[in-house]
Design a protein around this nucleic acid. Structure first.
Length: 732
DNA sequence: GTCCAAACGGTTTTT
DNA sequence: CCGTTTGGAC
């Protein structure tokens, strides 16, 4: 009699469907993981299981995610199951993995292995130069528009010269494809590529070089893909090429949470899985351990209205599954809505809910403002997610451009960015002659600049300034090897006058920018040298959300995907705003389904309490505009939701937020029933005339007058403003 | 070359 | 309404 081997602990913690997803190792597998059904657990356990059973060595598994955060989490959790750190993994984002492959085979697409990866800002500047050189009227045809067209082509795996008629663009009088070709030529000349190129080039290589493809087939026995519903066509093609080897591809995703079509994601990839990979097994994860039954009922009912879906139903898996119903609140205007949310937050706080368990999720970024203002008045700490990323900030980009230009003589884009920052009197005239010289001699800008300084070109003043910069760069580059990149980087920022520039800036952001520069230097210390640091920074956009302190989270629905909170507010459910009119105009019925998925994502973020609201009147771009409740409110199951406040449909002809234009003008509509709302203003701290204060938006200033909670303040940067006392804080 | 006022445009976002 | 970009004046 043979004894059944004991079930490993990591498998015993899974429910049957999760176990099936982990233990179905051979052949293509699609795991349809509904919200809150333990998707990450399945993915990481499967990975660990492959290693534990000896099916694969760590380097024989290709594991792909969309974000660095997800990659990091997977690495940590796999390590935790194995109880040791795992090394040598092919685990990372699509872009990081593609970059790693591309560096190995760069020459096959005409690049050197040390190619630079450009970010959005560099991309647009480069394209603008290309368009300008081609004589395109940049006013009529903004470069950002063409950038979008090119990106979509890249998302679909289309190189210049291979654009089918159906996918062509009439941008800039049908010159889009030619401009695309010139742009790619410029990139090649700079030994650079943009984010889209990483996958485009690699896919090209795998397609055209069977020996390379075969090498990866031998290497990767198993492929794991996270968030498959968000893949675009080129990512799909890359995966399919790699999966042709062993056919052991496991994709995890949720068609109901596909919300990124506007940046190239194709929900069809996941819908088509069985066709693409014949014999595929599909496992559905439907037991939700996150939310209460009423919340799941509301979400399920809503999403069932979508046509294009594979279909699955969320079951409440929690023991305490019963809970309060989803609450729909009808309000008069956006200000009342903000007050209502504020009150409910205070109530919850009194009952002991932690602020970090509360989130306000909006459709569009501008909606956060009214809530911020309200929370400031109430003195409730909050955090807005997803503003400018650390690495996208001006000061960080400037500093990196300095490093890049110093290290690499051929990095024209970096050189151009910092050559006159801080202002050293090098304007258009000087730059143009620099460009001309560089092109004539066929050398990078910095070399051309060196020659111009030597040769005595330019006027004395700019020449002296340029000489100083070039000498500095030579000095820093030389010192970098001897003294270490961090020390030299710090000195570079000082000696170039860059930190000085921000020290002299009186604006409210300046001190923060100096802090960010320090933070950048600190982060640099984790890397052996400047080159390693620059590679990291190009691909890893850290979203510096250090969750310090108890704060209410304010973010867009998109940013909330993958997160969960005890209490979730979903304001602004009005036609035109959500579903967004613009989205509907562009994509019709398909877009409506995506908006509905967004609503589904929103509701399923809530563990215990979900409050949805809509306002009859809202101020948008300064005009008071009326709107009718969102159709999504009608799609929630009656009997499973509670409705509060009379639904007040506006009396005048309803106008959609973005479509109909202003109907009510700048006057705020009066509430019909008087006294339905009271403005309870919170006692404001006494702020005396002459006090020094800080305001979130205007920065530092001095109070010149004070009456009834309103202060006149002379701001150092923003001038004189009248603001509510609640919006400023005293500075000693 | 720099600075300020008018003009413009204003979902969603990761790498 | 309000932040960003641009074009014209010094």
């Amino acid at each position: 009699m043979t004894a059944t081997p004991p079930l490993p602990e990591y498998l015993s913690r899974l429910n049957p469907e999760q176990r099936a997803a982990v233990e179905t190792l051979d052949g293509p597998l699609l795991v349809l993981a509904g919200a809150g059904t333990g998707k990450t657990r399945v993915l990481t356990t499967r990975f660990a299981h492959l290693l534990m059973t000896g099916r694969a060595q760590p380097h024989q598994v290709l594991a792909v995610t969309f974000t660095n955060k997800a990659a990091r989490e997977m690495r940590e959790r796999v390590g935790a199951i194995l109880q040791r750190p795992v090394e040598g993994l092919w685990l990372g984002t699509f872009h990081a993995l593609a970059a790693r492959m591309l560096r190995r085979h760069a020459e096959l697409v005409g690049l050197r292995p040390d190619f630079t990866i450009l970010d959005t800002d560099d991309q647009t500047r480069l394209l603008k130069q290309v368009m300008d050189a081609a004589g395109v009227d940049l006013k009529r045809w903004p470069p950002a528009g063409l950038m979008g067209v090119i990106q979509r082509w890249k998302d679909r795996g289309l190189a210049p010269g291979k654009i089918p008629v159906a996918e062509s663009s009439d941008y800039a009088n049908n010159r889009a494809e030619a401009l695309y070709a010139s742009y790619q030529a410029r990139l090649a000349a700079l030994n650079a590529c943009d984010f889209g190129d990483l996958l485009l080039h690699v896919t090209e290589i795998l397609r055209n070089h069977p020996e390379v493809l075969e090498r990866y087939h031998r290497l990767f026995r198993y492929i794991l893909v996270d968030e498959y519903q968000d893949t675009n066509l080129v990512q799909y093609m890359w995966l399919r090429l790699l999966a042709q080897g062993h056919r052991n591809i496991c994709c995890v995703g949720d068609d109901d949470q596909s919300i990124y079509s506007w940046r190239g994601a194709e929900i069809e990839n996941i819908l088509r899985f069985e066709k693409d990979f014949p014999g595929a097994v599909i496992v559905r994860l439907e037991s939700n351990y996150r939310s209460t039954r009423p919340i799941l009922a509301a979400a399920s009912h809503l999403i069932s209205r979508n046509q294009g879906r594979l279909g699955k139903t969320l079951r409440a898996g929690r023991r305490d599954a019963d809970g309060e119903q989803v609450c729909i609140v009808s309000l008069w205007d956006s200000e009342e809505e903000a007050r209502s949310v504020g009150e409910r937050i205070e109530q919850a706080q009194r009952k002991g809910t932690s602020l970090s368990e509360i989130a306000i999720l909006v459709r569009a970024g501008f909606q956060t403002r009214s809530f911020e203002e309200r929370l400031i008045t109430l003195g409730i700490p909050y955090r807005v997610f997803g503003g400018a990323k650390f690495y996208e900030r001006q000061e960080i980009r400037d500093a990196i451009a300095y490093f890049r230009a110093t290290v690499s003589a051929s990095d024209d884009l970096a050189f151009e960015r910092i050559v006159n920052v801080p202002k050293r009197g090098l304007g258009d005239t000087a730059l143009t002659s620099l460009h001309v010289a560089a092109r004539e001699q066929g050398v990078p800008l910095r070399i051309a600049a060196e020659r111009m300084v030597e040769g005595g070109a330019l006027r004395p003043k700019p020449r002296a300034a340029l000489r100083e910069l070039l000498e500095g760069m030579a000095r820093w580059r030389e010192a970098m090897e001897r003294e270490g990149h961090v020390v030299v980087a710090a000195r570079l920022l000082e000696e170039s006058g860059y930190t000085e520039m921000w020290k002299n800036d009186r604006s409210a952001e300046a001190p923060g920018r100096l802090d960010n520069l320090k933070e950048l230097l600190r982060a640099m210390a984790d890397f052996p040298d400047m080159a390693a640091f620059l590679e990291h920074i190009a691909l890893v956009m850290e979203n510096d959300d250090k969750a310090e302190g108890e704060k209410v989270s304010l973010m867009t629905l998109h940013a909330a995907k993958g997160l969960e909170f005890d209490m979730v507010f979903l304001p602004g459910w009005e036609e035109g705003l959500f579903p967004s009119q613009r989205s509907l105009d562009e994509g019709g019925a398909k877009s409506l389904e995506e908006e509905r998925r967004l609503a589904y994502v929103g509701i399923t973020r809530a563990r215990k309490c979900c409050v949805i609201s809509h306002a009859a009147n809202r101020r948008i771009y300064g005009n008071w505009t009326s709107s009718i409740p969102s159709r999504f409110l009608d799609e929630l199951p009656e009997g499973e939701v509670t409705r509060e406040g009379a639904e007040r449909r506006p009396i005048p002809v309803p106008s959609s937020v973005f479509g109909g234009g202003p109907l009510l003008g700048t006057r705020r509509p009066r509430l019909i029933e008087a006294g339905a709302w009271e403005v309870e203003s919170r006692p404001t701290p006494e702020i005396a005339v002459g006090s020094r204060v800080f305001h979130q938006k205007f920065g530092y200033g001095t109070v010149t007058a004070s009456e009834e909670g309103r202060l006149d303040i002379e701001f150092e940067k923003a001038g004189t403003k009248r603001v509510m006392a609640g919006f400023v804080e005293l500075v000693h």
